[in-house]
Simulated scan of single mutants.
Amino acid sequence: MGTRVIGVVGPSGVGKDTVMEAMAEADARVRLVRRVITREAGAGGEKSVGATDAEFDALVAEGAFALWWAAHGLRYGVPRAAVEDQGGEAVVLVNLSRGVLDQARACFDAFSVLSLRAEIATLAHRLAARGRETAAEIEGRLAQADSARPTGADVIEVANDGALADTVQVALAALQPERV
């Protein structure tokens, strides 16, 4: 069957990384892609690989990324090795920007979108709790929360307002209905 790539998207504070980690813990076939980001490794709470601009440029020139893009003043790369065919029924989850979904669709043969959503009050609470943004930045992120929601036959939308275990169960069932 080959490796299936799932682009996980959603507004800031929806819990993309938390849900992805919990899905990988719940199902051994699910693997996480650590993105390369032009910031210090692990900054922002994400388990990422840090790179300077020069290092990122070198990786682009080497063809090390299956997909890369710029957003929020940073550059993000999906390592090619992490999404190459791993055989069996492997599913890889990668945190993507909504703006690169069409590129991802063109890049990966077996691709789907897991679009996480949450109520504005939930997002506001989570953004404030993580303490990374100012009140004005939080307001800006909340204003964009419902914009550019992905559409298409490959989009699976899951709410993440309740218990994490419930979100994970719904997401795994939706992504792999034959196993439920």
Rank of each mutant, 00 (worst) to 15 (best):
E55S: 02
T134I: 07
V180W: 12
V8Q: 01
M1A: 06
A22I: 09
A129F: 00
S112T: 02
A51M: 02
W69D: 02
A110S: 14
G77V: 04
D146V: 00
L59Q: 14
L32D: 00
G2R: 10
T52P: 06
D53P: 14
T167W: 02
R31F: 08
A24V: 05
A82Q: 12
A26I: 06
G44C: 10
A171W: 13
V14N: 03
L164E: 05
Y76Q: 07
R29V: 00
E89D: 15
D109V: 03
G44L: 08
D161F: 15
V49C: 01
D166F: 06
V19G: 00
G44D: 09
R126G: 14
R75G: 01
D109S: 04
N160R: 13
V100K: 15
V60F: 15
N95F: 13
R126C: 06
G13I: 10
Q86S: 14
S12D: 09
S112R: 09
T134N: 12
L101I: 14
L175N: 00
G45N: 08
V8E: 03
E46S: 09
L67F: 02
V30A: 03
G162V: 07
V30K: 03
V49R: 00
M1R: 12
R34H: 15
L59T: 15
A28M: 06
A173F: 13
A128L: 04
E46K: 15
V155D: 04
V33H: 09
G45A: 15
V92A: 15
A106E: 06
G88L: 12
S97C: 09
S147T: 14
D57A: 03
R34D: 01
A66D: 04
L172C: 07
D166P: 10
L114M: 09
A148F: 06
R35I: 01
L142N: 11
A61T: 14
E157F: 08
G88I: 13
V155R: 04
T122I: 06
D17G: 11
V14H: 06
A143Y: 04
T134A: 10
D161K: 07
A51K: 12
I156N: 00
A82H: 13
V8K: 07
G45T: 13
L59I: 07
E46F: 13
G162Y: 10
A121C: 02
Q169F: 07
A173W: 11
I6S: 01
R39K: 14
M20L: 05
V19A: 04
L101G: 05
A153C: 08
E178Q: 06
V5D: 08
A70Q: 14
G10D: 01
A128Q: 08
P79F: 12
A143L: 12
A90Y: 12
V49L: 07
V36D: 00
D109H: 11
V91M: 09
A81Y: 10
D109E: 10
A90M: 03
A159G: 04
S112M: 05
V170A: 06
G152P: 13
D17V: 03
D57M: 02
P79N: 00
V158E: 05
N95M: 10
M20P: 07
V49M: 03
E157M: 07
A70F: 00
V33L: 02
L127W: 09
G77P: 09
V30Q: 04
P150C: 03
G10L: 05
